[in-house]
Simulated scan of single mutants.
Amino acid sequence: MTGNRLTAQGLTLAYEDRTVVDGLDLKVPDGNVTVIVGPNACGKSTLLRALGRLLKPQRGAVLLDGTELSRIPTRRIAQAVGLLPQTPVPPEGITVAELVSRGRQPHQKWWQQWSDADETAVARAMERTGTAELADRPVDELSGGQRQRVWIAMALAQETDVLLLDEPTTYLDIAHQVEVLDLVRQLNRERGRTVVAVLHDLNQAARYADHIVAMKAGRIVAQGAPADVVTAELVEEVFGLASVVVPDPVTGDPLVVPGPPRGAAPAERAVPGQTAGTTPAT
Score class of each variant (00 low, 15 high):
Q108N: 08
R189V: 14
H176C: 07
R149E: 04
W151V: 13
Q113M: 11
H176L: 08
E133V: 03
H107N: 13
L134S: 03
Y171R: 11
K109C: 04
E119N: 08
T169E: 12
K109S: 12
D116K: 15
G144N: 10
L156H: 01
V178F: 14
A117G: 04
D136V: 01
V100S: 09
D140V: 04
P138Y: 00
Q186I: 05
A117Y: 01
D136T: 05
S101I: 02
Q186E: 15
D116N: 13
E133I: 02
R137I: 01
D182K: 15
M126D: 08
G145V: 09
T170Q: 15
I152R: 04
L183N: 10
S143I: 01
K109G: 08
A121M: 04
W114R: 11
R104T: 12
Q148P: 07
L134P: 02
N188C: 05
V150S: 08
A153C: 06
A157S: 15
L172W: 14
W111P: 06
A175V: 12
E179M: 12
A135T: 02
T131V: 09
R128G: 00
Q113K: 11
R149T: 06
V139E: 05
Q105Y: 06
T169M: 13
L183G: 12
R189D: 14
E167H: 12
G144K: 10
Q112P: 02
Q105C: 07
R128W: 03
Q112D: 14
V100Q: 08
D140H: 10
G103C: 06
D161I: 03
A97D: 09
Y171T: 11
A121L: 04
D182N: 14
D161Y: 01
V96W: 04
A135P: 00
A155R: 12
A97I: 10
D182Q: 14
L164K: 02
L187C: 03
Q158C: 09
I174D: 01
G145R: 10
R102C: 06
S101W: 02
L165D: 12
D118P: 11
R102E: 07
L187K: 00
A117D: 12
W110G: 02
Q146I: 08
L163I: 14
Q177T: 09
D136N: 08
E167P: 13
L187Y: 01
G103K: 03
H176I: 08
P106C: 06
G103W: 02
E190T: 14
E133Q: 07
A132K: 10
D173S: 11
Q146K: 04
L183H: 12
G103A: 07
P138F: 00
T120L: 05
V180T: 15
D161V: 04
V162P: 04
E127W: 01
N188K: 09
R189H: 13
A157H: 14
R185L: 04
D182S: 08
T170R: 15
Y171N: 15
W110D: 04
A175H: 14
Y171E: 12
R189C: 01
G130T: 02
D161K: 07
P168A: 14
R191W: 14
Q158P: 06
A153N: 03
D182H: 11
Q113E: 13
A153R: 00
R128L: 10
P168H: 15
L164T: 01
G103V: 09
E119M: 02
E159P: 07
Q158R: 07
A157W: 14
L187D: 01
A153Q: 02
D161W: 00
H107M: 12
M126R: 11
L99C: 03
A132W: 03
D136I: 00
